[in-house]
């Protein structure tokens, strides 16, 4: 076999293996871990909720799928589904707030957060139902 052809064959095999590995990596890729991610927007819940209330369409275009870091008082902490913790951040007396879902937290006590305290949460915005919703959340402070 001519060295050129042999080298080409080796190259094809290497490319095939690399391509396959990249494919496998992409296929198995988990949701992004936001604990080290940089936020696209940093604001308090009052600002975020009022932007959605004023113009849902433009706020949706601006925030959905973006990493949003919000600060506000916790009005409710609830475990839902199997292992998801939902923390509601809402100003007192307000109908709408921000609901933050933390995947894989079955026990809120282990996180050491308490209702009434103010926290900062980073998550990916999925839009607004009755509240603005964030998923994949992590606690910033």
């Amino acid at each position: 076999m001519k060295p050129v052809i042999r080298n080409l064959l080796i190259l094809v095999v290497i490319l095939g293996v690399v391509g396959g590995l990249i494919g496998l990596y992409m296929y198995n890729k988990k949701s992004p871990d936001l604990s080290k991610a940089k936020a696209d927007f940093t604001l308090n819940i009052t600002e975020l909720v009022s932007e959605f209330n004023q113009d849902e369409t433009s706020a949706s275009a601006k925030y959905i799928d973006k990493i949003v870091e919000v600060t506000g008082p916790m009005s409710a902490i609830e475990v839902t589904g199997e292992t998801t913790m939902n923390v509601t951040l809402a100003d007192e007396g307000q109908m709408s707030g921000v609901i933050c879902s933390f995947q894989d937290i079955a026990n809120p006590v282990s996180v050491g957060i308490n209702k009434g305290e103010t926290i900062t949460v980073r998550g990916i915005c999925s839009g607004m139902l009755m509240d603005v919703l964030l998923i994949d959340c992590v606690i910033v402070k």
């Binding site: 890729k29 988990k30 949701s31 998801t84 879902s101 839009g127 607004m128 139902l129 919703l133 998923i135």
Partner: peptide
């Protein structure tokens, strides 16, 4: 896990609402 629902016990009416973007999967893809 961010589904909103209301049940009116006097009429039996029940409403569910969910955002599609709030569905979480094991794999990002």
């Amino acid at each position: 896990n961010q589904v909103a629902s209301i049940l009116d016990a006097s009429t039996g009416e029940i409403v569910f609402q969910a955002l599609m973007k709030s569905f979480k999967f094991e794999k990002a893809l």
